[in-house]
Computed example of a mutant assay.
Amino acid sequence: MIDGQSDATIRDVLAGTRRIALVGASDKPWRPSYEVMRFLLDRGYHVTPVNPSLAGQQIHGRPVAADLAAAAPLDMVDVFRASAHVGALIDDAIRLRAQTVWMQLGVIDQAAAERARAAGLTVVMDRCPVIETRRIGPITPRH
């Protein structure tokens, strides 16, 4: 995989995460972010959707935050944005002391990933937690 993470690391990230900010959340049921958010909520994660265009509304019964700061505290930043937007999100994730940045399928920014790793964050890139959970097997969050 492009991020170099082992299955054990992916399992640890998913098991050790409790609070997720899902950046690029959509209220459209046909969008992948909508489905992934439902999947994560159904597994007991506390997910805050982040989308400035939808701030104040709700997705899956959860209030939408305008930005990462409004979604804090958080453990993981799950990114459903174009790769060009990742750098600023990484900087915010570092500032807000996230533990993990998870970039969804097709979202790749090696320079931002290196900055995150240098700050001590785990970086998962070009992967989907739904696909990884199904591939690795059931993961029970430790929270």
Rank of each mutant, 00 (worst) to 15 (best):
Q104Y: 00
A70R: 11
L89Y: 02
F80S: 09
M76E: 13
L89E: 08
R19I: 08
E132I: 06
V13T: 02
L105D: 14
S83I: 13
G56T: 13
P129N: 06
I131E: 04
R95M: 10
V36Y: 01
T100S: 06
A69Y: 00
R11C: 01
G44K: 14
A93L: 02
T48K: 04
V107W: 01
A65H: 10
I2P: 12
A66M: 05
I20T: 03
I59D: 07
T17N: 06
A69H: 04
Y34V: 11
A98V: 04
G87K: 05
R97F: 00
G56A: 09
F80A: 11
R31I: 10
D12F: 00
I2V: 15
D27T: 11
L40Y: 03
W102M: 10
G24C: 08
D75Y: 09
H60G: 12
D42E: 15
E114L: 09
H85T: 15
C128N: 07
P73I: 12
D126G: 00
V47P: 05
L54P: 01
P29V: 14
T100W: 00
G120T: 10
I90Y: 00
D109Y: 00
D7M: 03
L121C: 01
G4S: 06
D78V: 08
Q110E: 13
R134T: 08
A69N: 04
P138R: 11
V13A: 00
Q104H: 10
S26G: 12
D109H: 04
I94C: 03
D91G: 00
A69M: 01
E35M: 12
L105A: 14
V36Q: 01
I131S: 00
D67T: 04
I20D: 00
Q99G: 12
D126Q: 00
R19T: 09
L40E: 07
Q110G: 00
P29E: 15
E35G: 08
V23C: 11
L121K: 03
A55V: 14
T140H: 08
A72Y: 06
P52F: 12
L96N: 12
D91I: 00
R134H: 12
D67V: 02
A71I: 13
A66H: 06
V107C: 04
I20L: 02
F80P: 09
H46Q: 15
G4V: 08
R142D: 15
A21H: 02
A65S: 14
D92L: 06
E132T: 10
R117P: 05
P73Q: 07
R43T: 13
D7A: 05
V79I: 15
L22Y: 05
G24I: 05
I2G: 02
G120I: 05
P29D: 14
A116W: 07
A72F: 04
V36R: 02
A98K: 03
Q58D: 12
A15G: 13
P141R: 15
F80H: 10
I136A: 11
S26C: 10
L14W: 01
V107Q: 03
I136Y: 11
S6M: 09
P129I: 05
G106P: 12
L40C: 09
G137M: 03
L14C: 13
D109V: 07
M103D: 00
W102L: 09
I139A: 07
Y45E: 12
V79Y: 02
Y45C: 11
D126E: 02
Q110W: 03
V101N: 07
R43C: 06
